[in-house]
Design a binder for these strands. Structure first.
Lengths: 148, 148
DNA sequence: GTAGATGCAAACGCTTTGCCCCCTG
DNA sequence: CAGGGGGCAAAGCGTTTGCATCTAC
């Protein structure tokens, strides 16, 4: 399997774009981030590596990373979009605690297969999907209901 | 089964809130809307019924409708939230055409059940979920693909 | 008379864009 | 020299909120 850097480079070249120092930095930082993170978080981490890189560039590169398949988006209902690694990671969905915001990755082949079948039945050519299960995690269920 | 109006009225009363002319108008218009619509669309329809009602009131009432179970939200990744009727309608998920934006409602009991089971396995108490399948609908597949 | 409800417009948070300079080729 | 890339800050978008007013009980 090609390295993520390689995939990104080839993606850029295919688009007639070039690998710039800023993009290289952002990709590196991106690959070192764990779990789910916001553009803002990535921006802050990128800034530690190179304070000269602006937020807009992070957003622009994040879009490229998504298009290249290196990044996957995770859309909460809160208006913000989170990102995670999307290359070399099996597809997974998320279990989200509505109280603490904690996210758990889940994989279910039965569901994946049903989704394919549903799409097929409707004549759709499936490109991607998003499944979010919201609930209260065990830890928060232990505590009493309060929001804090 | 209680009428939707009744459900909303009782919800308001339970919250110590009252049914106002504006809320009544918005509920009526809401119930007449079909399919999936944006707050903006609802606002425009409400305005035909009563031009004095402001956008903020529509948003505020939409939130109440959601809390009361009369409305269900459908979060596209585009930053906007769509609404649909949620009372007296079985839960369903959506198949969305990435090309024309068309939405098809789908129901799959196997998936619903698996979701419950997954949540259970992780100790989560499931409150709701959202499953969006993105793809290309039969009609758009017929036309030429464009940017492949 | 008190408390909630409303309309308006400004504020908000996240994301995108315009502009101009820079570097690359 | 041509053209994309980047930084900055302002604009843009959908949504929320502060405030003064008004209504209902």
């Amino acid at each position: 399997m090609k390295s993520a850097r390689e995939v990104f480079l080839q993606f850029l070249q295919r688009q007639g774009m070039t690998m710039t120092p800023q993009r290289a930095t952002i990709v590196e930082v991106f690959l070192h981030e764990e779990g789910h993170f916001s553009p803002e978080q990535l921006y802050m981490a990128v800034n530690k590596a190179d304070p000269a890189i602006g937020q807009a560039t992070v957003y622009r590169t994040l879009k490229l990373l998504t298009d290249s398949g290196l990044a996957a988006t995770l859309d909460m209902g809160d208006g913000a979009t989170l990102y995670e690694h999307g290359y070399g990671h099996a597809h997974h969905d998320h279990l989200i605690c509505v109280r603490c915001g904690g996210k758990t990755e889940i994989v279910d082949h039965v569901i994946e297969e049903r989704q394919e079948r549903i799409a097929e039945k409707h004549g759709f050519e499936l490109t991607r999907h998003s499944m979010l299960l919201y609930g209260v995690c065990p830890r928060c269920r232990g505590k009493r209901g309060g929001s804090g």
